[in-house]
């Protein structure tokens, strides 16, 4: 839809043609992005074990999924790990963002860069470095090591999300609270945190999703009893097609859609 609105001036004619071409291109790219996942969702209801022919509609694979012990156990593990990770990431991320906002530390800039390192560092390097670290300090691989690893790459995302919100916050809010006799802690808890709530919630959602989806770092830091859903899915996908995986994928995709819609709703609330 290359129709310009009144507020936007018309593009030069040559560029308008270019824009039309880009529009067609965009549609094609969206088909490329969505066709495979739509096919996956559709075929999760197929009676046939193979993807080639459509034999009939069934919920069988979903039922199988529910009674599959490795998968349900992995789901439970993933939920436990993601929950702990989210709580820790929110506490460290929100606290860190607030402190970096409120105080002028001597090495603020260096610290800011260091915080970004876990977000941009290649996952495999982070995975193997944590593996050797946990081995050297003799910490047995399991839930704890996975949670420690997940918190490390999740809290910077919360921190950055909260920082973005803090930049638009009126500094007078905290000053007023302090002038009215609140302790700094009370001012933070009763005034600042409520203002940051949308950013904290969207940061928490991000941390939860990142933790639920993380594969590479988890492969290196988990133990025998702490297999997460992505590691189990990876193992199954390596073996080839499995209709249960289609069903599981469909659930993943629908959950992600719900998550994205909810976050965008939050963002709308926070910018209002």
């Amino acid at each position: 839809m290359p129709t310009p609105t009144a507020s936007r001036p018309l593009l030069p004619s040559g560029l308008r043609l270019l824009n039309l071409g880009f529009g067609v291109w965009t549609v094609l790219v969206f088909i490329f992005l969505y066709l495979p996942i739509l096919v996956l969702v559709a075929y999760s209801f197929n009676t046939s074990k193979l993807n080639i022919v459509w034999e009939g509609f069934t919920f069988r694979w979903y039922a199988d999924l529910w009674s599959n012990v490795p998968i349900t156990r992995a789901l439970k593990n993933s939920l436990i790990i993601a929950s702990f990770t989210t709580v820790a990431a929110v506490v460290i991320g929100t606290g860190g963002a607030w402190l970096l906002h409120r105080y002028r530390y001597r090495f603020s800039r260096t610290l800011q860069t260091l915080i970004c390192v876990p977000m941009i560092m290649p996952e495999i390097v982070m995975g193997i470095s944590l593996l050797v670290f946990f081995t050297v300090i003799n910490l047995e691989l399991g839930f704890l090591t996975v949670i420690l690893a997940h918190v490390t790459f999740c809290f910077p995302f919360v921190l950055v999300a909260v920082q973005a919100r803090l930049q638009g916050l009126d500094p007078a809010l905290e000053e007023a609270a302090l002038d009215l006799g609140a302790s700094p802690l009370k001012a933070f808890w009763l005034v600042i945190v409520p203002c940051l709530r949308p950013a904290i919630i969207s940061g928490a959602l991000m941390a939860f999703t990142l933790s639920m989806d993380e594969l590479i770092i988890t492969v290196f830091t988990n133990g025998l009893g702490s297999a997460t859903l992505p590691t189990v899915v990876y193992g199954m996908a390596k073996k080839g097609l499995n209709p249960m995986l289609n069903a599981l994928s469909a659930i993943f995709i629908l959950t992600t859609i719900a998550f994205v819609l909810f976050s965008s709703h939050l963002r709308k609330l926070s910018t209002r």
């Binding site: 495979p36 996942i37 096919v39 594969l215 992505p230 990876y234 996908a237 080839g240 994928s249 993943f252």
Partner: peptide, 12 residues
């Protein structure tokens, strides 16, 4: 969406 799931879509 998990890249694992999206990769699996292409395997199918």
């Amino acid at each position: 969406t998990s890249f694992l799931i999206r990769t699996y879509a292409w395997i199918t």
